[in-house]
Design a protein around this nucleic acid. Sequence first.
DNA 1: TTGAAAGCGCTAACAG
DNA 2: CTGTTAGCGCTTTCAA
Lengths: 353, 353
Amino acid sequence: MDGMARDPDRAAGNDRGGQPYRPPRAATIYDIAREAGVAASTVSRALTQPQRVNERTRVHIERVADRLGYRPNPIARALPSGRTHTVALIVSDITNPHFFGVIRGAERQASTAGFTLILCNTEESADAEDRHVERLARGVDGFVLAASRLPDRRIRDLAAEIPVTLVNRKVGGVASAVIDQREGTQQIVEHLAALGHTSIAFLAGPQASWMASQRWRALSAAARRQEVSAIRLGPFAPTVAGGEAAADAALDTEVTAVVAHNDLLAIGVLRRFAQRGANVPGDLSVVGYDDIFGADFCSPSLTTLAGPLDEAGSTAMEVLLDLITARDSTTPRRDVVLPAHLITRESTGPCPT
Amino acid sequence: MDGMARDPDRAAGNDRGGQPYRPPRAATIYDIAREAGVAASTVSRALTQPQRVNERTRVHIERVADRLGYRPNPIARALPSGRTHTVALIVSDITNPHFFGVIRGAERQASTAGFTLILCNTEESADAEDRHVERLARGVDGFVLAASRLPDRRIRDLAAEIPVTLVNRKVGGVASAVIDQREGTQQIVEHLAALGHTSIAFLAGPQASWMASQRWRALSAAARRQEVSAIRLGPFAPTVAGGEAAADAALDTEVTAVVAHNDLLAIGVLRRFAQRGANVPGDLSVVGYDDIFGADFCSPSLTTLAGPLDEAGSTAMEVLLDLITARDSTTPRRDVVLPAHLITRESTGPCPT
DNA sequence: TTGAAAGCGCTAACAG
DNA sequence: CTGTTAGCGCTTTCAA
C-alpha cells in the first residue's frame, strides 16, 4: 500500500508549505469506486464508455464522482493508451504576426476536438526545432510544423514515427497545408508590370526558409514571363529591423519596385525608405506577403499578397487530427493548397519616368 | 506478458497502416537494461542521476541508449513523480498583440527552464477559461493566467490546489506580475493637461477586465488631481473593430482627447475618426495602452503607455517555476510591479481652441 | 453488466 | 554501487 509516495498530499502536489488550507489529495477512480461500492474498472467504464454500463450504476457513479470533485488525470490516462490528446505546434518565431493566424486557426481546431495545444518557438533555429521535437516526440500525439527549418530528411523520418503535418512547407510523403505562392506571385508581377515597372528586386528571407525559395522561384518565373527583370537581394532577417539593410541594398540598385519576403520586412523597408527620403510609391513601389496585422494601417498602406493563414493552421490541424484518429486505416495523405490573393493598397504605383 | 496492448507497434503508436517503413516500437529502459545487462532501475538512475552510478556502467548504458535511439517517455516519467514539467499559459485572446509580448516572455522562460508550455485561448470567456483550467489542472505543474476573466474566488481556490501566477491581475494571496497603471496613467493625464486639454473621455474595455477597471480608476483619479474632467464611455470590445463604436460615442461628446482601453481600440478609433473627417491630433488627441506592434507605424503614430509585456510574461513564469520547484519550502509570495512609461507620438497635440 | 488483474514506462524505497 | 519491488492512475482484457 505504499512505496515511494508515502504522503498522499505530497504525491498529489498539494503541499502548501505552511498555508492554512490543505485540500485533500485529489480523488481517483478508486476513491469513487470505494465510495460507490463498485470496482474501479466499472468507474472507468462509466466515465469513458457510458453505454457499456448499467444506466443506474452510471448515474450513481457520476453522482459520487461529482461529489468528490473528481477530475480525470490525463497523464494516467495517457500512459496505458499511448494517447495524450495533446499536439504540438512548432513555429519559427512566435513574434512574427505571420504566425498569429496559423496559431489561432490551429488552436481553435485542436480545442474544438478536445485536444490540448503545446506551442513551441524555435527562434528560427533548426537546432532548437530539433530539440523541441525530440523532447516532445513521446509526449504528444502529433506535430504541426509551421514553416519548419528542419531538413527534408529529418521531417520524413519524424513523420515515419509519429503523425506530422506541415504548414507552408512541402516534403514528399508528408501531409501539408500550403498557401499557393505561384499564382499569387504571378499576380504581384502582373500588377507591377501593369504599372510600368520593368525592373524589380526580391528581398529574400532566411536561407533555410522553404517559403523564401518558393517565393523567389515563383517571382523569377513570373518576371520572365512578363519580360521584366528581377534580381534577388539578401538574405535578410524577416523582421522589421531587417528592413533597414534590405532597403539600403535596394537603394543601391536601379530597381523601381521591391517585393519583400514578408510584410514585416516590407514595413521595415517602408520605414527606411522614408528615412532616406525615398518616396513610396513615387520613387519606388513596395509589395509584401501575408497581409499581417498592421499592413492596412501602416503608412503608406501596404500592397501585399494575402493568404488564408488561419485556414492554413486549422486545415493542418484538422489533417493531423485525422491522421491521429484514423491512424490504422489507410487514410490517403492530404496535400491541401490554399489560394492567395493580392490586395493592392497605397505602396504600389506607376513606375517613375 | 500482455494485457491490453498486444501489438507492441500499436502500443507505441507506430502503426503506419500500409506504409512501407515500420520502425520498431520505441525503446524503453527495459530494452536498454536487457541489452546492457543491468537492471532497469540502474538505467533509470544512470539517465537521471548520473553521479549515483558507476562511471563505467553509466557510459555503457548511455552508449546502449544511444544505439537504441532511446527517448524518455515524459508521460511515464510524470506519472510516479506527479511532475509533468509542463505549465499552461492562459490568455483571453491570442489574436491580441497585447499578449504577444507576454507569450514570448513566458515561453522563453519556460523553455529555458526545460519546461513545456501549453497555450490556451479563452476568447474573452470566463467559461472557456474555466473549462480549460479544469481540464488541464491535473496535467500541468502550474498556471500562468494572463488577464484572467475568472472571478477572484475561483482564482484563489485554484491557487490553493496548484501553483498559479497572474499577469496583469491582482488577487489577494496569489502571486502576480502586473504593469503599474497608476503612475503611467498619471503621465498620460499630465501630458494631455500640458497640451491644454480639459475634457477627456476614457473608452473602456470589457466589463470583466481587471485592467479596464484599474485604468479607469487611475485615470479618473489623475484627472481629478489635474482638474480636468474625465468621462467614461463603453464598454467596447478591445479590438480594432470595437474602435468604430468607441469613436462614434466619443464624437457625440465635447471631449478633445480620448484615452482608449488599449492600442487595438485606439487604432480602430484612429481609423474611424479619419473616416468621419475628424483630424487627429488637430481636432482630437488619442492615447492608447500597451505600445503594441503597429503603434509606431500607424498613421498618425500612436501616443501610448508602454509596459514591459515581455518582462511581465517572463517574470510571471519565473515566479511560477519558483513556486513549483520550491513548493515545500515556504517561499514568500511574490508580487512584482513593473513600471510603464509614456511614449508620445503624433496622435496627441494641443487642445483645439 | 460487472469484477479481478495485468500492465503502460518510469521512479524511488529498500536491501544487499 | 546495483538489483528487487511496488506503485503512480487509468484502461482493457478476460472470466464470471
